[in-house]
Write a protein that binds this DNA or RNA. Structure first.
Lengths: 204, 204
DNA sequence: CTCCTTAAGGTACTGGCGGTACCCTATCAG
DNA sequence: CTGATAGGGTACCGCCAGTACCTTAAGGAG
């Protein structure tokens, strides 16, 4: 056996791998330091030497699994672009990887420092950029008014998706919900932002 | 001293009161059974005889504080109605009472049975009805098209408010955010739902 | 008033957890 | 070869949820 004693990066990877496995197996609440140590074939000391808090290990383990793929779509129409992006997000969130993320988010309610790290992962950077790009293309095609390119509009579908996940339980959202979000809210809003009428539309 | 030994309802109220105080003082995570028992001047037995789980006590304690006021507004215009309702919700959520609710919601991520109870409290019933009433009045006044009276539209402002709370931290949302939610999203959406154009508005 | 059921009080315990201390030992740089 | 570094093993502290067991006050039935 070339066993020897693992050191440095090698051990660190082993710990992260073990932590990630515990995370997907038992959730954050079940990711015990002892269990991670045992699964990694080491002991708590080696873990605490690297991450001072259990929560820090949780975030690190999540990052270790998260592959941070940047979603890109370009189907040619606004509606199909939006639907596709939303479907990708739904698939991602309902995967084990997403379950871990949601679990971590819930668990880290009292650890404000870690919340920031997670929020970034939860759909901050790349995802938002994708929605902006989608809107810009729609404007270029004449499918949407220029006023629609706005942060709050771009973030809306993902916010609604999050809302649905918060409202319902764990399982993946049925596709009809995604279609509703797009057809009942997102697209009507974009249409409505074309009309700059501060005064009610009654009168007519 | 008329001390005596408290029994039945009297003791139950004392426990609930103590639990509620611990809840607002230290959050759900800090609401220890021992601390509740000590504050109530009793012991854990008396608590476990009534609530089999700590989470059950948490929910009961929350209900004990929650006053379940039904919000009602009627200012005469859609925009002011919506803004007022949203401001009330914001004030309620940023109050200690709201902090407890958000804390409980986060903590109960792995207790699905309790989630339902909390979700109801979190703005399910009465609040939704208020938004429906608001929309209906706007339609009656001619301020909104009848197509706007729809569950997803009614729930939208509260969903966005929740989204902002999830995104940012604890503190109360500044009023500009509420105004933006109404002016940039809610009202344009209602306007947009008047135009039933499945085909893009380009072409013109 | 007495007795007896009921429920509250007190205390101690189990088991699991996060986190720390201490000491032993393998590894690697010099 | 040697000494600093870091991994390994183990025991420990304090805290917590939940349980067991016994003592003691309260209140109703007779």
């Amino acid at each position: 056996m070339t066993a020897g004693r693992r050191r440095g990066v090698e051990l660190e990877r082993a710990i992260l791998r073990a932590a990630a496995e515990e995370l997907v197996a038992s959730g954050y609440a079940g990711m015990t330091m002892d269990k991670v140590a045992r699964r990694a074939g080491t002991n708590k000391n080696a873990i605490y030497r690297r991450w001072p808090q259990r929560a820090a290990l949780g975030v690190a383990a999540y990052k270790y699994v998260a592959d941070a793929r940047t979603p890109t779509v370009d189907t040619g129409t606004l509606r199909r672009d939006a639907l596709e992006l939303l479907r990708q997000a739904n698939a991602s969130w309902s995967s084990p990887h997403g379950a871990v993320l949601r679990d971590l988010l819930a668990a880290a309610a009292d650890e404000p420092a870690l919340l920031d790290l997670l929020r970034e992962q939860a759909g901050g950077g790349a995802l938002n950029a994708a929605w902006f790009a989608l809107l810009s293309r729609a404007v270029a095609r004449g499918e949407a008014p220029p006023e629609a390119v706005q942060p709050r509009v771009a973030a809306l579908p993902m916010t609604l998706l999050r809302g649905e996940y918060a409202l319902r339980g764990v399982p993946a959202l049925p596709d009809e919900v995604l279609v509703e979000i797009i057809d009942e809210i997102f697209l009507p809003l974009i249409r409505g932002r074309g009309l700059a009428c501060p005064v009610p539309l009654s009168a007519g």
